[in-house]
């Protein structure tokens, strides 16, 4: 018993002495790591992070405590992590949204202030429609909308959300006059779609796939260059309408980040851990079931992915007149 007390006091003395910026990488992780999830419990980002992180923990040999910090389309969580010390003990677990903060006027902290640990996966957008909608293909939908301007209701998730970007993409090449009905997330919007409150919804495949399989809604087109293995019968928009192929593949993504300035060996440890986590069977199955494409990018490829995504999307939003500030102001090049 005495031994334990001695051991404890030495450990206490040591650890107290070690606090501050002295988190030496060999000891990393010397304490719990906080993982701040930008979105709410039960959502896509949350599910992905909670699946992959336990496997990364095994490699790291430490504990990652995950916390949801919602609000301001992820800006609250982003700012919180930005305000912490760059010591690798606070991870940002987020989705694509911060890359649009600058053009949407939500502050000037985006992923350029962070180092990507792993861009885990990318979602594929899909156009789904209410079962009673009088069209079954993209061409029929366009014809119907052009014959009945503003009568067709598109679900949306607010400016800068996936639905608004896909709708902007479609409008950039085809004249489409629709009424956009906003919802606070693709889940509620897809529920409304099944009840007929909206007619068409551009959603991420993962959110709609079970509804399509169960016959509660019908798929119009996959917004990608090739059909997905998860739904092989749904035509890819890039194939049927090649004018969209340049934009694609495009989709929301999930990634783990640390603040810039984090010691390189800590970044290396985290990168290795999450790369391993992305290879786990649980994660691969979850991604396949939900129709996500695994990317598992880190280092320069991840930076390139982020830069490209930001440039394509910011300009789409700018050209659709949704942006509050031009991407030019922030030096985001036109693709």
């Amino acid at each position: 018993m005495n031994k334990i007390i001695v051991k404890f006091t030495t450990a206490f003395a040591l650890t107290t002495a070690l606090t501050g910026s002295l988190a030496i990488a060999q000891d990393y992780p010397a304490k719990e790591i906080q993982g701040i999830i930008q979105w709410g419990a039960g959502g896509s980002t949350d599910t992905v992070m909670r699946t992959v992180t336990p496997h990364a923990e095994e490699v790291l040999g430490g504990k990652v405590v995950m916390k949801n910090m919602t609000g301001g389309v992820g800006a609250i969580a982003t700012k919180f992590v930005y305000a912490q010390k760059p010591d690798g003990y606070t991870l940002l677990m987020g989705a694509e949204n911060p890359l649009l903060y600058k053009v949407m006027g939500l502050g000037d902290i985006d992923y350029s202030e962070f180092t990507p640990i792993n861009i885990l996966a990318r979602g594929v957008p899909i156009l789904v429609a209410n079962n009673d909608a009088p069209f079954n293909t993209f061409a029929e939908m366009v014809a119907h909308i052009q014959a009945n301007p503003n009568a067709v209701k598109f679900g949306s998730t607010g400016p800068g959300g996936l639905a608004s970007v896909v709708t902007a993409m479609l409008k950039s090449k085809t004249d489409l006059q629709v009424t956009e009905v906003p919802y606070d997330g693709d889940g509620p919007a897809l529920t409304a779609l099944q009840g007929g409150a909206v007619d068409v919804m551009p959603a991420v495949l993962g959110a709609a796939i079970e509804g399509i399989k169960g016959g509660r809604m019908k798929a119009i087109a996959l917004v990608d260059n090739a059909a997905s293995e998860a739904l092989p019968d749904v035509p890819a928009l890039g194939e049927t309408n090649p004018e969209y192929a340049d934009y694609l593949p495009w989709g929301p993504f999930f990634g783990v980040f640390v603040k810039n300035g984090t010691p390189e060996d800590v970044v290396a440890k985290l990168t290795a851990a999450y790369a391993e986590g992305a290879k786990s069977d649980d994660f691969i199955k979850l991604m396949a079931d939900r129709g996500f494409v695994i990317e598992s990018l880190s280092g320069q490829p991840a930076q390139d992915f982020l830069a490209n995504w930001q440039s394509v999307t910011s300009w789409l939003i700018q050209d659709a007149g949704l942006a509050k500030a031009s991407p030019e102001e922030f030096g985001i090049p036109r693709p």
Partner: peptide, 23 residues
């Protein structure tokens, strides 16, 4: 479709356990 906040999280839990909640 979640009926409230708790069932929303349970749906996430089912996904994590390899099930696909849906129709």
């Amino acid at each position: 479709i979640p009926g409230d906040a708790v069932t929303a999280i349970m749906i996430g839990a089912l996904y994590i356990h390899g099930l696909n909640p849906g129709p």
